Amino acid sequence: MKIAVICANGKAGKLIVKEAVERNLDVTSVVRGDNQTAAQNVLKKDLFDLTTADLNGFDVVIDAFGAWTEDVLPQHSTSLKHLCDILSGTDIRLLVVGGAGSLYVNPEHTVQVSDGPDFPAMFLPLAKAQGKALAELRKRNDVKWTFISPAADFQADGERTGKYILAGEELTLNANGESVISYADYAIAMIDEATKGNHIQQRISVVAE
Protein backbone atom coordinates (compact mmCIF):
# COMPACT_ATOMS: atom_id res chain seq x y z
CA MET A 1 0.00 0.00 0.00
CA LYS A 2 1.28 3.42 -0.98
CA ILE A 3 0.34 6.33 1.27
CA ALA A 4 1.02 10.04 0.88
CA VAL A 5 0.82 12.27 3.96
CA ILE A 6 0.27 15.92 3.11
CA CYS A 7 1.61 18.56 5.52
CA ALA A 8 3.60 15.75 7.08
CA ASN A 9 5.89 18.04 9.09
CA GLY A 10 3.06 19.07 11.41
CA LYS A 11 2.54 17.45 14.82
CA ALA A 12 -0.22 15.14 13.62
CA GLY A 13 1.44 14.50 10.28
CA LYS A 14 4.74 13.40 11.82
CA LEU A 15 3.06 10.84 14.07
CA ILE A 16 0.89 9.54 11.24
CA VAL A 17 4.00 9.06 9.10
CA LYS A 18 5.82 7.37 11.99
CA GLU A 19 2.93 4.96 12.53
CA ALA A 20 2.81 4.08 8.83
CA VAL A 21 6.57 3.59 8.57
CA GLU A 22 6.59 1.32 11.61
CA ARG A 23 4.01 -0.85 9.87
CA ASN A 24 6.30 -1.15 6.84
CA LEU A 25 3.97 0.75 4.55
CA ASP A 26 5.27 2.67 1.55
CA VAL A 27 5.00 6.24 2.84
CA THR A 28 5.73 9.54 1.12
CA SER A 29 5.86 12.77 3.09
CA VAL A 30 4.53 15.78 1.20
CA VAL A 31 6.20 18.86 2.69
CA ARG A 32 7.00 22.42 1.71
CA GLY A 33 10.39 22.54 3.41
CA ASP A 34 12.94 20.00 4.60
CA ASN A 35 11.53 16.64 5.58
CA GLN A 36 11.31 16.26 9.36
CA THR A 37 9.51 12.92 9.33
CA ALA A 38 10.48 9.25 9.41
CA ALA A 39 9.53 8.79 5.75
CA GLN A 40 12.30 8.01 3.28
CA ASN A 41 10.21 9.12 0.31
CA VAL A 42 9.66 12.86 0.08
CA LEU A 43 7.68 15.08 -2.28
CA LYS A 44 8.68 18.68 -1.70
CA LYS A 45 5.72 20.72 -2.85
CA ASP A 46 3.10 23.10 -1.50
CA LEU A 47 -0.34 21.54 -1.06
CA PHE A 48 -1.92 24.10 -3.38
CA ASP A 49 0.58 23.26 -6.13
CA LEU A 50 -0.13 19.51 -6.08
CA THR A 51 -1.51 17.99 -9.28
CA THR A 52 -3.32 14.78 -10.15
CA ALA A 53 -0.06 13.49 -11.61
CA ASP A 54 1.73 14.06 -8.28
CA LEU A 55 -0.71 11.77 -6.48
CA ASN A 56 -1.13 9.11 -9.15
CA GLY A 57 -0.07 5.69 -7.91
CA PHE A 58 -1.00 6.28 -4.28
CA ASP A 59 -3.71 4.15 -2.69
CA VAL A 60 -4.43 6.62 0.10
CA VAL A 61 -3.76 10.33 0.55
CA ILE A 62 -3.88 11.62 4.13
CA ASP A 63 -4.57 15.34 4.52
CA ALA A 64 -2.96 16.58 7.75
CA PHE A 65 -3.34 20.25 6.87
CA GLY A 66 -3.90 22.63 9.77
CA ALA A 67 -4.36 26.40 9.92
CA TRP A 68 -4.63 28.15 13.25
CA THR A 69 -4.59 31.93 12.75
CA GLU A 70 -7.69 33.76 11.61
CA ASP A 71 -6.22 35.03 8.34
CA VAL A 72 -5.55 31.50 7.04
CA LEU A 73 -8.52 29.62 8.54
CA PRO A 74 -10.39 29.74 5.19
CA GLN A 75 -7.64 27.49 3.82
CA HIS A 76 -9.30 24.56 5.57
CA SER A 77 -11.94 24.84 2.85
CA THR A 78 -9.75 25.89 -0.07
CA SER A 79 -7.08 23.25 0.57
CA LEU A 80 -9.65 20.48 0.85
CA LYS A 81 -11.40 21.67 -2.33
CA HIS A 82 -8.08 21.61 -4.17
CA LEU A 83 -7.32 18.05 -3.03
CA CYS A 84 -10.83 16.91 -3.95
CA ASP A 85 -10.55 18.52 -7.38
CA ILE A 86 -7.28 16.78 -8.24
CA LEU A 87 -8.51 13.42 -6.86
CA SER A 88 -11.95 13.69 -8.46
CA GLY A 89 -13.01 10.53 -10.27
CA THR A 90 -10.00 8.48 -9.11
CA ASP A 91 -9.94 5.45 -6.81
CA ILE A 92 -7.46 7.15 -4.49
CA ARG A 93 -8.92 7.46 -1.01
CA LEU A 94 -8.66 10.81 0.78
CA LEU A 95 -8.46 10.66 4.59
CA VAL A 96 -8.81 13.99 6.37
CA VAL A 97 -7.54 14.95 9.83
CA GLY A 98 -10.64 16.72 11.12
CA GLY A 99 -11.75 18.53 14.26
CA ALA A 100 -14.08 17.73 17.14
CA GLY A 101 -16.10 20.94 17.11
CA SER A 102 -18.38 19.66 14.35
CA LEU A 103 -19.32 16.45 16.19
CA TYR A 104 -22.99 16.29 17.17
CA VAL A 105 -24.26 16.21 20.73
CA ASN A 106 -27.85 15.15 20.02
CA PRO A 107 -29.40 12.20 18.16
CA GLU A 108 -31.09 14.53 15.66
CA HIS A 109 -27.69 15.88 14.57
CA THR A 110 -28.82 19.47 14.84
CA VAL A 111 -26.48 20.68 17.62
CA GLN A 112 -22.69 20.53 17.41
CA VAL A 113 -20.03 20.60 20.11
CA SER A 114 -19.02 24.10 19.00
CA ASP A 115 -22.58 25.34 19.60
CA GLY A 116 -22.30 24.68 23.34
CA PRO A 117 -22.15 27.56 25.85
CA ASP A 118 -18.95 26.18 27.38
CA PHE A 119 -17.07 25.86 24.10
CA PRO A 120 -13.84 27.92 24.41
CA ALA A 121 -14.23 31.18 22.49
CA MET A 122 -10.60 31.07 21.32
CA PHE A 123 -11.22 27.80 19.43
CA LEU A 124 -14.55 28.81 17.91
CA PRO A 125 -13.18 30.30 14.65
CA LEU A 126 -11.12 27.13 14.04
CA ALA A 127 -14.07 24.86 14.82
CA LYS A 128 -16.33 26.80 12.47
CA ALA A 129 -13.73 26.75 9.68
CA GLN A 130 -13.26 22.98 10.01
CA GLY A 131 -17.02 22.48 10.22
CA LYS A 132 -17.51 24.49 7.03
CA ALA A 133 -14.86 22.37 5.28
CA LEU A 134 -16.67 19.20 6.35
CA ALA A 135 -20.02 20.54 5.15
CA GLU A 136 -18.49 21.25 1.74
CA LEU A 137 -16.80 17.84 1.68
CA ARG A 138 -20.15 16.12 2.25
CA LYS A 139 -21.29 17.47 -1.12
CA ARG A 140 -18.49 15.66 -2.97
CA ASN A 141 -19.66 12.33 -4.33
CA ASP A 142 -16.79 12.25 -6.83
CA VAL A 143 -14.10 11.55 -4.20
CA LYS A 144 -13.58 8.59 -1.85
CA TRP A 145 -13.17 10.70 1.26
CA THR A 146 -13.26 9.92 4.97
CA PHE A 147 -13.21 12.70 7.59
CA ILE A 148 -11.82 11.56 10.95
CA SER A 149 -12.63 13.71 13.98
CA PRO A 150 -10.57 13.35 17.15
CA ALA A 151 -12.01 13.52 20.64
CA ALA A 152 -12.70 16.94 22.15
CA ASP A 153 -9.46 16.88 24.17
CA PHE A 154 -6.87 16.24 21.46
CA GLN A 155 -3.54 15.93 23.22
CA ALA A 156 -0.43 16.58 21.13
CA ASP A 157 1.95 15.08 23.67
CA GLY A 158 -0.38 12.43 25.10
CA GLU A 159 0.86 8.87 25.49
CA ARG A 160 0.46 6.13 22.91
CA THR A 161 -1.77 3.52 24.55
CA GLY A 162 -2.39 1.52 21.37
CA LYS A 163 -6.13 1.49 22.02
CA TYR A 164 -9.04 3.61 20.87
CA ILE A 165 -12.80 3.49 20.32
CA LEU A 166 -14.09 4.01 16.78
CA ALA A 167 -17.28 6.07 16.80
CA GLY A 168 -19.48 7.98 14.39
CA GLU A 169 -20.97 11.46 14.02
CA GLU A 170 -21.74 12.03 17.71
CA LEU A 171 -19.39 13.05 20.51
CA THR A 172 -18.57 9.79 22.28
CA LEU A 173 -17.26 9.41 25.82
CA ASN A 174 -15.11 6.55 27.08
CA ALA A 175 -15.75 4.47 30.21
CA ASN A 176 -14.30 7.31 32.31
CA GLY A 177 -16.78 9.78 30.85
CA GLU A 178 -14.03 11.54 28.90
CA SER A 179 -13.65 12.67 25.31
CA VAL A 180 -9.88 12.54 24.98
CA ILE A 181 -7.27 11.06 22.65
CA SER A 182 -3.56 11.56 22.07
CA TYR A 183 -2.12 12.44 18.68
CA ALA A 184 -0.25 9.12 18.81
CA ASP A 185 -3.40 7.03 19.30
CA TYR A 186 -5.17 9.12 16.68
CA ALA A 187 -2.35 8.22 14.28
CA ILE A 188 -3.02 4.53 14.95
CA ALA A 189 -6.70 5.02 14.11
CA MET A 190 -5.79 6.95 10.95
CA ILE A 191 -3.49 4.21 9.64
CA ASP A 192 -6.01 1.52 10.63
CA GLU A 193 -8.58 3.35 8.51
CA ALA A 194 -6.08 3.68 5.67
CA THR A 195 -5.31 -0.03 5.63
CA LYS A 196 -8.56 -1.65 6.73
CA GLY A 197 -11.31 0.93 6.70
CA ASN A 198 -14.12 1.40 4.26
CA HIS A 199 -15.94 4.45 5.60
CA ILE A 200 -16.25 5.99 2.15
CA GLN A 201 -17.87 9.44 2.15
CA GLN A 202 -18.41 9.28 5.90
CA ARG A 203 -17.27 11.18 8.97
CA ILE A 204 -16.04 8.97 11.78
CA SER A 205 -14.53 9.84 15.15
CA VAL A 206 -12.09 8.31 17.61
CA VAL A 207 -11.69 8.48 21.39
CA ALA A 208 -9.24 6.84 23.79
CA GLU A 209 -10.47 3.74 25.62
Rank of each mutant, 00 (worst) to 15 (best):
A8Q: 02
L171D: 02
T69A: 12
A12I: 08
E170D: 14
G99T: 01
N9S: 07
V61H: 08
V111G: 06
C84T: 13
T37L: 02
L50M: 03
I200E: 08
A20L: 09
F154T: 04
H76W: 15
D34I: 11
S179N: 06
D85V: 05
A12M: 10
W68S: 14
H82W: 09
F48A: 13
S179T: 13
L83I: 12
N24A: 10
L124P: 06
K128G: 01
N56R: 13
I165S: 01
I191T: 04
L83N: 13
A53E: 15
S205N: 12
T195C: 12
S79F: 13
I191Y: 07
W68M: 14
A38D: 15
V42N: 11
A135G: 11
A100D: 03
E19P: 04
V27R: 04
G162E: 00
L124F: 08
V180Q: 05
L80E: 04
Q130A: 00
H76F: 15
R203E: 02
I6C: 08
D46F: 08
T195Y: 05
A8I: 06
P125I: 06
G131C: 03
G162W: 07
V143I: 03
V207I: 09
H109T: 10
S102Q: 15
D63Q: 12
P150R: 08
D118K: 10
C7W: 03
D118H: 09
H82V: 06
I165P: 00
K81P: 03
N56P: 02
K81R: 15
I86P: 10
V96I: 15
V21T: 12
D71A: 00
A20T: 08
